[in-house]
Design a protein around this nucleic acid. Sequence first.
DNA 1: TCATAGGTGTACAGATCTGTACACTTTTTA
DNA 2: TAAAAAGTGTACAGATCTGTACACCTATGA
Lengths: 195, 195
Amino acid sequence: MTSTKKELLLETALNLFNEHGFHNTGIDMVQSVSGVSKTTMYKYFKSKDELIIEVLRMRHNQFSEWMDTQVAEFSKAYEDKPCGKLRAMFDALHEWIQRDSFCGCNFINACAEFTDCSHPIHQLATDHKLSVQKYVQNLLEQAEIPESEALAIKICLLMDGAIVYAHTVGQKQAASIAKDMMLVLLEYTACRNSE
Amino acid sequence: MTSTKKELLLETALNLFNEHGFHNTGIDMVQSVSGVSKTTMYKYFKSKDELIIEVLRMRHNQFSEWMDTQVAEFSKAYEDKPCGKLRAMFDALHEWIQRDSFCGCNFINACAEFTDCSHPIHQLATDHKLSVQKYVQNLLEQAEIPESEALAIKICLLMDGAIVYAHTVGQKQAASIAKDMMLVLLEYTACRNSE
DNA sequence: TCATAGGTGTACAGATCTGTACACTTTTTA
DNA sequence: TAAAAAGTGTACAGATCTGTACACCTATGA
């Protein structure tokens, strides 16, 4: 029960960073919106950068769990079709994009603000993306699809493209468009390997 | 000759925004790096927001011109192949991504910092992306490929995916991977229409 | 009951940021 | 050559931001 306040701070900060960006969200804002005192805040997080890092770490865990459950749920609809989990992944993405609170991907946004690749925050984003890539590769291997690594990169590129295109131009169908592209890609791979 | 200083300011600001982000680049920094006095600066740009807007407008024009010449140049290599200009577009993207100064797309980054879709700066980014989409659609029509609008969206999604994936995980091959995906897509479209 | 851990509230130091004021110099042009 | 346009330099108002200091409150468990 000790870390209720800490979690509240992380959750509040995540929402504010989403809505206003990282540099444009002041510590004072996190403090006043959360209602937690500044002193307590600096007890848990030595600096703003550390807060950002912990927020992104939490977001990574949240996202991973969320994706897992969503994939489990959506893939039920594809029981008789191949690559159900991969399809489900894009359905999850679609659901996310439809939300009013959708502001793009926190990690992509973080890279936009912390452009230097060697910055710890940028590196955290890199780690997240590579972790998603591994996840996708795993799904491909489960489906016994060859060239899983190269394909995983392509599918991640499609997902990021969908997220960004949805956010920049408000193209709410981006995920289902990307899903179609993935299916073409999988079909093409299957054809090439059955020749 | 009147606007040399203005252009210098725009060019300097563009570089600094690229390197440090929009909110993290102070007016004082633009002033001191450009060497132009602050008074002159505020004569040309009423506020920082206006500077950002004009920088993005300039960037849009720069990018459009650059893409035109690059496509003209790179498409020479595809004279005997179909969709040379579309291939060339991804070659241009590839060249851009290889640069040391590559920091992702200014417009995607702008949306990351100005998340609200109704913000003038976000809208400028939307306009830019839709303009690129129109450009791609035009190339598709030139190549007499059907369903040009739907395909243009897909190709733009691929380009943005490549840019973002290159920036976040440092995947320098992203553009040529995306190019492969586009070719599969075009082949698929051609097959479907010849049935 | 009382030490301890966790939390509050607020003031503030010091840096930085946007934008303005004002007096001055340089360049251009008519 | 003189007026107009463009630019300089600097100080500073006022807001905001990060991070710290310090005195105080409250729950709880040994």
